[in-house]
């Protein structure tokens, strides 16, 4: 579904991503792991055509995305839930969901009703200002907004950032539920343990490069991953 080949991303003279190859197959949940600044978000930005200097190739369902405007990329079926939630705080929950239907020619209201069935907490708060929701609820709203447009690929950028442990647990339940329903997901996440638990495959980023890749199960067993990312979980008796 998504094929990234030889991708390099530059911000001015700074190279944020160097020669990255990755792919996401239909119905897969693929995680991008790595510390803050490792290049995960830059890869996502490049998929959306946001950085001004991008080299390499990003193909979605066989169509080259490099050089395409962001709105056309979104209209092709890629929804991104940005880091930091990105909900419109001074708009209602319903208005935020309606923004997700911007590219739908028809059926927006029905699609919003479907999404609210999946996330009943949002359905109960349609008239509430998004800025008054809790962090976890805002993250659910951002995901729901992305789902309203019927994306074939849902990209989540650091969805657990700043959330409480309970909210993180609920969020991963929602992500796994979406994945079980056949939604293709690309998940950029620092929380490697949770991400590997949910993912089919993962890529590990370090200083703009992919340093490790493989199935989530393999990576969970990899000593380097255990040392770098899972130490505290293993010390706490995690799996």
């Amino acid at each position: 579904m998504l094929e990234v080949a030889g991708l390099s991303v530059y911000y001015g003279a700074v190279r944020a991503v160097e020669d990255v190859d990755l792919y996401v197959a239909e119905s897969e949940l693929v995680a991008l792991l790595g510390a803050n600044g490792a290049g995960k978000s830059s890869v996502i930005a490049a998929i959306l055509g946001i950085p001004t200097v991008i080299r390499g190739s990003v193909r979605f369902e066989g169509i080259e995305l490099i050089g395409m405007a962001t709105d056309r990329i979104v209209a092709r079926g890629i929804a991104v839930v940005p880091e930091g939630r990105g909900v419109m705080a001074r708009m209602t929950v319903l208005e935020n969901l309606q923004l997700g239907a911007y590219h739908l020619k028809r059926g927006g209201a029905a699609r919003i009703a479907e999404v609210c069935e999946r996330f009943p907490i949002l359905g109960q708060r349609l008239r509430q200002q998004a800025g008054t929701l809790s962090g976890g609820e805002r993250q659910l709203l951002a995901i729901a907004r992305g789902l309203v447009g019927r994306p074939r690929l849902l990209i989540l950028d650091e969805p657990t950032l700043g959330l409480s442990p309970i909210a993180i647990r609920d969020l991963f339940e929602a992500i796994c539920d979406l994945h079980r329903g056949g939604q293709t997901i690309l998940l950029a996440e620092q929380n490697a343990y949770q991400a590997l638990q949910a993912a089919d495959r993962a890529y590990v980023f370090d200083v703009g490069r992919v340093t490790l890749q493989g199935s989530a199960r393999e990576l969970m067993q990899d000593e380097r991953i255990q040392h770098a990312y899972l130490g505290e979980y293993l010390a706490e008796g995690g799996e």
């Binding site: 405007a69 709105d71 979104v74 929804a79 990105g86 419109m88 923004l99 911007y102």
Partner: peptide, 13 residues
């Protein structure tokens, strides 16, 4: 409210 997010949502700026 948020031009960056508006772009990511897919609004043709």
């Amino acid at each position: 409210q948020d031009l960056g997010t508006a772009r990511i949502i897919g609004i043709p700026l």
